[in-house]
Amino acid sequence: MTGLFDVRSAQKNGALLIEVSGEVDGAVEMQFVESVVDNVRTTEAARVVLDLSRVEFMDSTGLRMLLVCQRRAEDRGIPLTLAMASSSPVSRLIDVSGVAAMFQYEPLD
């Protein structure tokens, strides 16, 4: 069963934690902008953690959204880190796209 796109967010120890699950592609672009990008743009938190470990598929539109998040966070001086396993679909997409060095990663425990 492939999951529907879903976003949950929470505040934890001064950090904004955004958990994305399901498939991130062109079909959910607007939802992603509203629930994730706008959140990064307006948050009062000191840092943002984007948890992508439950993303099952991401295409180039999804990657563009991640890069936009990264840019918005940078504009505001808020550190943004990604959390996912190195074998996850998002990790592979980031590797193929040659942009691995452009993001910071959350250590997985």
Binding site: D95, S97, G98, V99, M102
Partner: peptide, 12 residues
């Protein structure tokens, strides 16, 4: 060899 996407970064 993989290099970064084009049109996004200033000096890839």
């Amino acid at each position: 060899t993989t290099g970064p996407i084009a049109g996004w970064f200033d000096d890839p």
